[in-house]
Amino acid sequence: MRSATRLVIIALLGLFLALPVVSFAGSFSSASAEPADRLVAQPTQPTAPSSPGATAPSGPKLQPDTEADRLETRRKLIMGVTSVVLIALVVWGRSVRRKRKKALEGK
């Protein structure tokens, strides 16, 4: 019975931790879906064929994050860390309660 409870807790924790990673990774794959005002086009100049040691030209430059984006990211990070700490406290408290109950039954 306890192993099933632990399995559910671990599965839910894994799900909650995996969702932000999936959405974060998905934001890179949908870069073409972003508005055009976030991308700054670099003017290209025709050049002669490059030598084998030359590097490839860089892609489009993204504008730096705005203050609102940074605040939103910080808020999400704080909420995520707080959630993980609260879940850890609940799991730890349940284990302490279970040990106390077991000790009282053993007397």
Rank of each mutant, 00 (worst) to 15 (best):
A33W: 05
R97P: 01
L86W: 13
V84F: 11
P35G: 09
R97E: 05
A48M: 15
A36G: 14
K101H: 10
L19S: 07
T5C: 12
V22K: 01
A33D: 15
W92C: 02
S23W: 07
F16E: 07
P43K: 00
S29L: 13
T82S: 15
P60E: 03
K107G: 03
L86S: 10
A54S: 13
R38Y: 06
T47N: 11
K76F: 05
V40H: 02
S27R: 11
A25D: 04
F28A: 15
S3G: 03
R75Q: 11
K101D: 07
A4F: 06
P60S: 13
T73V: 08
A56E: 01
Q45L: 09
G93W: 00
I78F: 12
V40D: 02
L15N: 03
R6D: 11
S51P: 07
L13C: 08
A18D: 04
A88H: 14
S95H: 04
K76M: 11
A25C: 06
S32K: 09
I9A: 14
P46W: 12
R100K: 15
A18H: 04
E34T: 10
V81K: 07
V85C: 06
E34P: 04
V96N: 04
L71P: 06
A68V: 03
G14L: 11
S29H: 12
L17T: 01
R98Y: 01
K76S: 12
V85A: 15
G93K: 01
V21I: 10
P60N: 11
L13I: 09
A88P: 08
I87L: 15
D37F: 03
L77H: 06
E72D: 10
K61W: 01
R2E: 00
R75C: 08
L39N: 08
K107E: 12
A11G: 12
R100S: 13
I78V: 15
E105C: 08
A41R: 03
P49H: 06
G93Q: 01
R38A: 06
I9V: 12
E72H: 15
E34I: 04
S32G: 08
G80V: 05
I78H: 05
L7Q: 11
S3R: 08
A11H: 04
A48S: 09
E34Q: 15
V40M: 02
P52H: 08
R6T: 07
F16K: 09
P46C: 09
S95E: 14
Q63H: 10
T73Y: 10
P57V: 06
A48E: 15
A25S: 12
A103H: 00
R98H: 02
S29P: 08
A36T: 06
V91G: 14
G26F: 03
P57N: 14
L71M: 11
R94A: 12
M79D: 05
